[in-house]
């Protein structure tokens, strides 16, 4: 087989895989949404306000309930101690 044909077949193969990946993200939604609905039900019943992403500090565990200057607890421009603090922006109303 010519090199060009090998290349075109390979590109077509990974191109199809790529398209299937995009399609599977849409087709798999229904099955995955059952789990999502269960999480939403739990959040509604327990009246949860935050996702459990970072458990290292109280203001990263519940960023929406945190003190006004969190994640910059000590003052607005202080260096962040916890790594996950660098993923969380200050509340929108304090952004400049």
């Amino acid at each position: 087989m010519r090199k060009s044909d090998q290349f075109l077949f390979f590109t077509a193969f990974i191109g199809i895989l790529f398209v299937l990946m995009l399609l599977s993200s849409r087709l798999g939604q229904e099955a995955a949404n059952a789990g999502l609905r269960e999480r939403a039900r739990l959040a509604r019943e327990l009246m949860l306000t935050d996702l459990c992403l970072f458990t290292e500090a109280r203001y990263t565990r519940h960023p929406s309930m945190a003190d006004l200057h969190s994640a910059f607890q000590d003052h607005p421009f202080s260096l962040e101690h916890f790594p996950s603090g660098s993923f969380i922006s200050p509340p929108a109303r304090y952004e400049r």
Binding site: S25, G28, A32, N33, L53, T55, F82, P83, S84, F87
Partner: peptide, 20 residues
């Protein structure tokens, strides 16, 4: 990177969603 200093790290699988 996400775990940071935390001892307890939630392992979760996200629902596939790709933004075109």
């Amino acid at each position: 990177a996400l775990k940071g200093w935390a001892v307890l790290y939630p392992r979760f699988r996200l629902v596939p969603a790709v933004d075109g």
